[in-house]
Computed example of a mutant assay.
Amino acid sequence: MQKHTVSMHFVGAAVAGLSGEARARVLASAGIPSELLAASHARVPAESFSALWLAVNRELDDEFFGLDRRRMKCGSFALLCHAVLHAGRLDRALRRMLRGFAAFLDDVQAELRVDGPDAVVAVTNRIEAAQARRFADETFLIMVHGLMCWLAGRRIPLTMAEFAHPRPTHAQEYTVMYSQRLRFDAERTAVRFDAQLLALPVVQNATALKTFLRTAPQSVFLKYTNEDSWTARLRRRLRGSIGREEWPRLEDVAREFHVAPTTLRRRLDAEGTSYQGIKDELRRDAAVHHLCGSRLSVAEIAASLGFQETSAFHRAFKRWSGVQPGEYRRRQAELGPGRADDAPPPPALARG
């Protein structure tokens, strides 16, 4: 599985319901410095967030972070996976999945309906506290969508994600987690995808399920990673450009892949990604790595990532993280010493 980074927002939300002592315990077990909780712009490797998820589960005996009035006891998700494994088709698996969640949770439930060309998973959330309600929506959709993608053996692109809460400061994360098309302050939280995909067969078996559960929750929140997908192929190709001043154009990569540029764009779009999005994700994580673990100047980092002007890098990094690169480096320095200059290469967001 390719590596990925997770926003510190989700780390803070995951431990919000714990006592101070329990919070320190689970953060330590996941290898996440507690000081990072104050750095909302920071990111952690997917492995660390996965370890944190499991540690919170064990601490609470609840696989839903203590958000619902009823505990989703440890082992519930595995039981749910076994229940949907032999559903035959994605639509039957999804309906069975949502009924299973309804049996485990009281405050958060969802239904599947078909609205013209769209299949819609609409969520009902009765949690009172606004931040907990939002994190419950985020977590529920990640679990449902991740399991859907795995069952079908392919990524299910979401054509739109709607949220029954105001646009949060970390909304940019949603374009990676859910869809490029977002709507906030909606009547209900919901995701939409092509209704024709409901007819997809469930391609997994009991042997594959053991692997899926052994790597959960990371295998869930990273969705299904098809190493032969166009997204994965493009990511591998662009990763080799990190550290070089020249990055290939989409037209150049399409020629290497022996397809027309329009075909490559269309196939990436079908997988819910884009050339520019993948390029930005790789450059963002590389920028974070250099700012935290090297002595390169901001101008040198910008040049190494293919920015012709340092000011363009400043604007891009502000869009990615909410702060200017110099401010990001200063805050990280205040949290402790950075990594050595020969630190390993940065993790890259895994989508594909």
Results as ranks from 00 to 15, higher is better:
V11T: 05
S76P: 05
G272W: 00
S311F: 09
K279C: 08
A152F: 03
D194F: 07
A343V: 13
D341Q: 12
D61F: 00
R96S: 10
E256W: 14
L282F: 00
L36E: 07
R58Y: 07
T231Y: 01
R43T: 05
Y328R: 04
R95T: 03
V123D: 12
S19L: 14
G326C: 02
H4Y: 06
A333V: 09
A199K: 10
G243P: 06
D285A: 12
T139M: 03
P157H: 07
R331M: 15
P117R: 12
Y178V: 05
R249S: 15
R192F: 12
G20Q: 10
D185Y: 01
H4Q: 02
V220Q: 00
L105S: 07
G153Y: 03
V202K: 04
A38R: 13
V84W: 02
E246I: 09
D61T: 03
R249C: 06
G306R: 11
E245L: 08
A348Y: 04
A16F: 06
A287P: 00
R25K: 10
D228H: 15
V84S: 08
G277A: 14
L222A: 09
F317H: 01
E173T: 13
D285L: 07
R237S: 02
A199P: 00
A132Q: 13
E256L: 06
V121P: 03
V120K: 10
V15Q: 03
G243A: 01
A190W: 03
Q196N: 14
G336C: 15
R235T: 13
E309T: 14
F193G: 14
D115P: 01
E47Y: 04
P347R: 14
G12I: 00
R249I: 03
M177H: 03
A164H: 03
D91R: 14
E138C: 13
Y275M: 11
R315E: 14
E128C: 02
L98D: 06
G88N: 07
